[in-house]
């Protein structure tokens, strides 16, 4: 479930073109797309199709997508392309991102670095609920976590995955689950499928 009592957990909403923007960039994690979502997105973004670029990762080419389509291999290519932006982005630009939570916040972080403010950015969650988990002890992140407890990639401690979320890190907090009673590790279950 996306809902949480912990208020640092972001809420996401369906993307809608902001007609106050002059240029629009839609970044989509292809592998996270539900069936039919691309077609509905194309309809939704039709009013701004003339000033829309769509960056699509992973998935095969799609016919009839709104705006000018660019295909990129992975999220790393998206981040590199943003970081080396060959044109300056400005006040009129709007960025829309659709994908899993690690994808959304990777792109949001790269966009913030080149000057996108919160009012220029929309995020819509799609696909798996898997999490990026940041270890509070060794500060290494572990990707693609689907279980409520995970062994840290950095220090091997078993981390309880909390709902507390950092937008800067794009990650959930992981805290050693057996710190108070070493070795007492509860059953590990898949909870973020």
């Amino acid at each position: 479930m996306m809902h949480s009592d912990i208020k640092s957990r972001p809420a996401y909403q369906a993307l809608v073109p902001d007609l106050a923007g002059s240029r629009h960039l839609l970044v989509i994690e292809g592998d996270a797309l539900p069936p039919g979502r691309l077609a509905t997105l194309s309809n939704t973004f039709a009013p701004v199709a003339d000033s829309l670029h769509t960056w699509l990762t992973g998935a095969p080419a799609v016919e009839g997508i709104a705006g000018k389509l660019w295909q990129l291999g992975s999220v790393e290519d998206v981040l590199d392309t943003l970081a080396c932006a060959t044109r300056g982005y400005g006040m009129g630009d709007r960025l829309y991102v659709l994908g899993t939570e690690p994808f959304l916040w990777s792109v949001a972080g790269a966009a913030a670095l080149i000057g996108f403010g919160p009012g220029q950015l929309q995020l819509e969650h799609a696909g798996s609920l898997r999490r990026r988990v940041w270890c509070t002890h060794c500060h290494v992140t572990t990707e693609n976590v689907t279980t409520g407890i995970v062994a840290c990639r950095g220090c091997s401690r078993h981390l309880l995955v909390r709902d507390h979320f950092s937008r800067r890190l794009g990650a959930f907090m992981g805290v050693m689950v057996d710190a108070e009673a070493p070795g007492e590790i509860p059953a590990i279950e898949e909870v973020f499928a």
Binding site: I6, K7, D163, S166, R168, M173
Partner: peptide
């Protein structure tokens, strides 16, 4: 973890 967070975010838990 919390640096850069807004008031509501850092009080989240």
């Amino acid at each position: 973890f919390d640096v850069g967070m807004s008031f509501m975010e850092w009080h989240g838990p």
